[in-house]
Design a protein around this nucleic acid. Structure first.
Lengths: 155, 155
DNA sequence: TAGTCAAAAGTCAAAGATGGTCAGAGGGTG
DNA sequence: CACCCTCTGACCATCTTTGACTTTTGACTA
């Protein structure tokens, strides 16, 4: 194998497969020692090989008893819908309440959000909830909608 | 289990559950001995795991016959839960990710949010979604949580 | 009754244990 | 040669553990 990142990637995927479970927990330090590399190499591998788009979810905790947990997830069938909605976000510098509503309703129609979830999210993203700093409202909405879509992109 | 704090947390919750009662009384020293740690470790566990927003109340007495009493707060009215959580929002100028998570989980435990809704909201309110403007993060979180609770109070 | 003492529990800050980030150096490939 | 991926290390953030010092309380004593 060409480089250590590929080796570590294969190793982690192997462990994940053998464990039968949908998730594994590792200690960054341990893996780094095993492959004789610096700890941040592990972050590099994770950031480049275990992304959401590739079907992985990573959580971690610092401090004593810390860990990195890698979870295998199944991607949602409607990636195309999400992609097109993200294009829309990209095309609109201003994310008005109206636009947010349209996007949420679209997600509902595609079966990706329940009616209650739409109501809930719309309420949180409303002008009223977000407050007066009109500039930032559009920014926050964009970021939160992106976070939403990232979450919806897998089961 | 990863670290002693988690172990002690589990132990106390187990005792609480088995006792049937809504409160248990422990001796700090005894618990510390049982888990071979310093007594102040118990305070750490209590301060980080048995917080008000998680639905626990802790009282204690020093001196001879001293004790620590941990009580699971059971509120029967949704309005009471929401009111107490709003008090908590009010008491915390900084709304960390951790606090937000605790509050959302509490709402789940009280039957006011589904698990999926918790995940959804948690992602929208995470540091990652809100971006680096640490100043405003706390403000946005407060406003959106208040909006959420207002919506939930209509039911 | 007031004072003293020992037995709890509380506080807090430092040390320890992890993981995260980022920018720059290093290397391989078209 | 240019560019993109990889690797490294210094510095940062967060959570846990520890211990010295403080406060509170009740019992015993003068």
């Amino acid at each position: 194998m060409r480089n250590i990142s590929d080796v570590i990637e294969q190793y982690l995927k192997q462990v994940l497969k053998e464990s039968q479970a949908e998730a594994i927990e590792i200690k960054r330090q341990d893996i780094a020692k095993r492959f004789e590399c610096v700890p941040s190499q592990i972050n590099y591998v994770i950031n480049t090989r275990f992304t959401v788009e590739k079907g992985y979810l990573v959580e971690s905790k610092r401090g004593g008893g810390g860990y990195i947990r890698i979870r295998r997830v199944i991607l949602h069938e409607k990636q195309d819908v999400l992609a097109s909605l993200m294009d829309i976000l990209h095309d609109h510098p201003r994310l008005s309440e109206q636009l947010v509503e349209n996007i949420l309703i679209r997600l509902f129609e595609e079966g990706m959000l329940s009616e209650r979830e739409v109501r809930l999210l719309y309420h949180l993203l409303s002008d009223e909830a977000l407050g007066l700093n009109a500039e930032d409202r559009h920014l926050i909405r964009r970021q939160q909608l992106l976070a939403l879509m990232k979450l919806l992109s897998y089961h």
